[in-house]
Computed example of a mutant assay.
Amino acid sequence: MTLNILAPIFLFTLTAAITPGGATTLATASGLQYGLGRSIPLIAGIAFGMVSLSVAASVGLASLMLTSPKLHLLLKLAGTVYLLWLALMIARSNRPKTRDDLAKPISFFGSLGLLWLNPKAWAMTMGAAASFSALITDPLHLAFWLGLAFGISAIFSMSLWCSTGSLLARLLKTDRQWKIVNVILGLLLAASIMPIWLF
């Protein structure tokens, strides 16, 4: 595979993964509350979600999923409820407890569910598969390269956003500052739902 084919794929996936949205807000909130180390399952779940969605899109499964209006509506509703619940949990959070066993970050499967219930992620991976199928005509090769690119980009992006949250945690000194930041992150996550209803 030549660089002039791979470069646009990696540039697209990195741009898609790093721009603010629901997953990046969750990664920032997780870094803020739990630090980078305890957020690794969340990062891995988001990355695996992007890989699996891009593979599904490359082999045509995503288009089947989104061609059914009832299934698409159900996907939107489930994704909206899940994201609103997460936004509420973040907004209601206070300063993290000092004992590690009192706080549980979002799990691998919780963050994987975030991606699979997000029609915006489906549309993004379908768009990538449709766009780059002209460069890579074999669906299995397309699935491999898109999956690899989305996986690497998601790990990099979520780690960056999570590290930003960890850095922010060091700057917060009072309970009031923690509450304000958590409410802002909760509101940003809730606002990230709007594009779901535009697709």
Rank of each mutant, 00 (worst) to 15 (best):
S131Y: 08
S153C: 05
F156K: 04
A128Y: 02
A128C: 02
L187R: 00
S157V: 00
A134Y: 14
V183I: 15
L172E: 00
W122I: 10
G186W: 08
L187A: 12
W178H: 12
A128S: 04
D175C: 03
L148Y: 06
L187E: 01
S131T: 13
I184A: 08
G127K: 05
Q177R: 13
A169S: 15
L148W: 03
P139Y: 10
G147N: 01
D175W: 00
A169W: 07
A143W: 08
L171E: 14
A149M: 00
G147P: 00
R176W: 09
L185W: 03
L185M: 15
A129Y: 09
A123M: 12
L172G: 02
S133H: 06
G165E: 08
A130S: 14
S131G: 13
R176M: 08
Q177C: 04
G165W: 05
T164I: 10
W116D: 01
Q177I: 03
L167I: 12
I152C: 06
G165Y: 07
T137H: 14
F132G: 10
K179P: 06
I155D: 05
L148V: 15
L117Q: 04
A143V: 06
F132H: 10
A190D: 05
A190G: 05
W161H: 00
A130I: 09
W116V: 01
S131M: 12
G147Y: 00
S153N: 08
N118H: 07
M126V: 09
W116C: 02
L117E: 01
L189M: 15
A143S: 10
L142W: 01
A129D: 12
W122S: 10
V183W: 08
L135G: 06
F150W: 12
W161Y: 12
I136W: 00
R170G: 13
I184K: 02
S166T: 15
A190S: 06
G127H: 03
L171I: 08
D138C: 06
L172I: 02
L148P: 06
D138I: 02
M158A: 14
F150R: 13
S133G: 07
S166H: 08
W122K: 09
L146S: 07
L148M: 13
L117F: 05
D175R: 05
G147F: 01
L142Q: 03
F156S: 09
L171Y: 12
L142E: 04
D138P: 04
W145T: 10
P119N: 07
